[in-house]
Simulated scan of single mutants.
Amino acid sequence: MAFFATKEPLLLSLLLAIGFFVVAASAGNFYESFDITWGDGRANILENGQLLTCTLDKTSGSGFQSKKEYLYGKIDMKLKLVAGNSAGTVTAYYLSSKGATWDEIDFEFLGNLTGQPYTIHTNVFTGGKGDREMQFHLWFDPTADFHTYTVHWNPINIIFLVDGIPIRVFKNNEKHGVAFPKIQPMKIYSSLWEADDWATQGGRVKIDWSNAPFKASYRNFNDQSSCSRTSNATWVSCDANNNSWMWTTLTPHQYGQMKWVQDEYMIYNYCTDYKRFPQGLAKECNKLE
Rank of each mutant, 00 (worst) to 15 (best):
K215S: 03
D131M: 06
E289F: 15
W139Y: 04
W247C: 00
C271E: 01
E69K: 14
L250T: 06
P166I: 06
L81A: 02
C238H: 04
N241T: 08
A199G: 07
A87N: 08
W38R: 15
A87Y: 08
Q201H: 15
K175H: 14
P166M: 05
G63I: 04
I36V: 15
I45M: 05
L52M: 15
G28I: 10
T59S: 08
L79V: 10
V162K: 02
S225T: 06
E264M: 09
F140M: 03
Y270A: 04
K68Q: 11
F4R: 14
N44A: 11
L11V: 14
I18A: 15
Y94K: 12
A233P: 02
I159N: 00
R276I: 10
A83M: 04
A17K: 00
F3Q: 08
E47Y: 09
T230S: 06
V169T: 14
K78Y: 03
M134R: 13
L95W: 15
S210Q: 14
W153D: 01
K58S: 15
I267V: 13
K68I: 01
V151E: 02
G111D: 08
Y94T: 12
D57R: 10
L281Y: 07
N211K: 14
G256S: 14
F136V: 03
S244H: 04
W153Y: 00
Y72Q: 07
W245R: 07
A87I: 07
V90W: 01
G128A: 07
N211A: 07
F160H: 08
D197K: 11
M258Q: 07
M134L: 05
E194L: 09
S231A: 03
D208P: 03
F214D: 02
M266S: 02
T126K: 08
N48Q: 11
A216N: 13
F136L: 02
A43V: 12
W153A: 00
L14N: 12
M246N: 07
F221L: 04
T251M: 01
Q50T: 14
A233N: 10
I45S: 05
S231H: 03
M266R: 13
G111S: 12
N243K: 04
L16C: 09
T200K: 07
Q224W: 01
A216R: 06
Q65H: 11
Y70Q: 04
W260H: 10
